[in-house]
Write a protein that binds this DNA or RNA. Structure first.
Length: 482
DNA sequence: CCTGGAGTTGTCCTA
DNA sequence: TTAGGACAACTCCAG
């Protein structure tokens, strides 16, 4: 255990940072020289049911470019390879003479299975393997109820975690990295991560992937009025959320670093801080639940929902939802924000999810897959938990009768219409009173605003009242069946 | 084993 | 206009 080695490999996955990187830190401490490698497994991992989507791959490209620069600035280089990870790691062991491989753990079912396989194979080869926790405040297996079962409800889970939570000071980034020369590497462009069609302009306008930018954003947030977070985070027109999700997903910053930054700049007892830190708790909880209930990526956590009568003929409505053409203003605003920027405000995610699942009646997996492909922060644990929560199929899910009314939600959280007017400019001239429900606007009002319903902007594809009732009835049939 | 309080994010109707 | 209760029961989880 922890023998010294002349050469060690750091297999980077979703820990694309130099600071507070336990695998990197261990390798540098233990070895004279390190190989830093990222392996693109596209096409090699046929058993991964959730391969990264297009927006994620765009982010990954930028993040690898940034990481490559950070590594070069410390005297080493990032090796890029393509293929099955075990094959690549074996090649690198042979080429570099490495005696140990370090990585930071992932928690998705397919990644756990793959890593387990690779660890056993490398150990059979006589190579030491050491995995680390670089992604979570607490490992999923560390927190259990009094009877030793996993928690299914957030509040007691988070209480138990916080009771003995100790968030250590982040590890420093290495000042210098001694690399291994002359290892073959692919050019970043050769990985083909960037889109062939030119749709990524909006992403580049809004986001700067990479460790340096992640830290800038985290510091800016930690120094902002986080004590107001509990109110401000619900207003999609305002910059009240941290927008750290994609940085956290790719490990450009660790939850430990974010936690310590907020603690350093804020009173952690203030309500807004408490709520923000509990959002990091939800990130933990989603990883925790997926670890203990790995089937939930595709199947309802609550089994009785396997028989739920989702609509099978909703294709054109799903398409309208995806394109932001439902005729329901705040939903279309959110879906267009997603398409353009690869991100959507959390409050609006709940609203669009409720419409798809409850009003349109489509299976939540349609939404989960669309988000998976279009979000730059697409994260399997968070995506799974969010959609099961919206659909009411999870263990700690919304009660079935909690069906969002997108008009009420819009008026409550975007009352001045800044968000809708930005993303649905064809409605911008409508007065606040009708902005969220243009179908109720009198003809002269529509005319004055230059809106011809069904031409400039769609008439609503669902009637909110009757579709709500249909959803409630569907739950009724489920109850009678069981 | 039993008991009982509690459970992210709502809506609608009535008084 | 606003406040309060119904909406359903069920399971979780600590004591």
């Amino acid at each position: 255990m922890n023998d010294r080695h002349a050469t060690g490999i750091v297999w980077l996955r979703r820990d694309l940072r130099l600071a507070d990187n336990p695998a990197l830190h261990a390798a540098i401490t233990q070895c004279d020289r390190v190989v830093l490698v990222y392996v693109d497994e596209t096409g090699s991992a046929d058993d991964d049911p959730w391969p990264a989507g297009a927006a994620s791959r765009w982010w990954l490209h930028q993040s690898l470019a940034a990481l490559s620069g950070h590594i070069a600035a410390r005297g080493a280089s990032l090796t890029l390879r393509r293929g099955a990870a075990l094959d690549v790691l074996r090649e690198l062991v042979a080429e570099s003479g490495a005696g140990v491989v370090h990585w930071n753990r992932l928690y998705e079912p397919a990644a756990i299975a793959r890593d387990k396989r690779i660890k056993a194979a490398l150990q059979d080869d006589g190579v030491e393997v050491d995995s680390h926790n670089g992604a979570l405040l607490v490992e999923p297996w560390q927190t259990l109820t009094k009877t030793g079962t996993p928690y299914r409800v957030f509040t007691p889970f988070w209480r138990a975690v916080r009771r003995d939570l100790n968030v250590p000071a982040p590890l420093p980034a290495p000042e210098r990295i001694d690399g291994v020369d002359a290892l073959g590497t692919l050019a970043l462009d050769a990985l083909g991560l960037e889109p062939e069609l030119d749709w990524d302009e909006g992403l580049a306008e809004v986001w700067t992937p990479g460790e340096a930018a992640a830290m800038v954003r985290a510091k800016a947030f930690a120094e902002s009025p986080v004590y107001d977070y509990d109110d401000k985070r619900d207003l999609p027109a305002e910059p009240g959320t941290s927008r750290l999700s994609p940085h956290l997903h790719f490990g450009e910053i660790s939850p430990r670093q974010v936690w310590r930054l907020v603690e350093a700049h804020q009173d952690p007892e203030a309500e807004g801080c408490r709520v923000f830190l509990s959002e990091l708790g939800w990130r933990e909880f989603s990883h925790y639940v997926l670890y203990h209930f790995p089937h939930t990526t595709d199947a309802p956590m609550n089994e009785k929902f396997a028989a739920f009568p989702w609509r099978s003929d909703a294709e054109s409505d799903i398409r309208a939802w995806q394109r932001g053409r439902t005729g329901i203003a705040i939903v279309d605003a959110g879906m267009r924000e997603l398409w353009r920027t690869g991100w959507m405000h959390n409050r609006v995610r709940m609203i669009v999810a409720s419409l798809l699942v409850k009003n349109i009646g489509a299976h939540w997996l349609h939404g989960a897959r669309w988000f998976w492909d279009t979000l730059v922060d697409a994260d399997l644990p968070a995506n799974t938990m969010g959609w099961q929560w919206s659909a009411g199929t999870g263990a700690d899910a919304a009660p079935y009768f909690r069906i969002f009314n997108p008009v009420t939600q819009g008026e409550k959280f975007d009352g001045k219409g800044g968000y809708v007017r930005h993303w649905v400019p064809e409605l911008a001239e409508l007065p606040d009173k009708y902005l969220h429900k243009p179908w109720e606007a009198p003809a002269p009002v529509l005319e004055a605003a230059g809106v011809r319903l069904g031409r400039d902007y769609p008439a609503p594809i669902v009637d909110l009242k009757t579709s709500r009732k249909r959803a409630l009835d569907a739950f009724q049939t489920l109850k009678e069946a069981s």
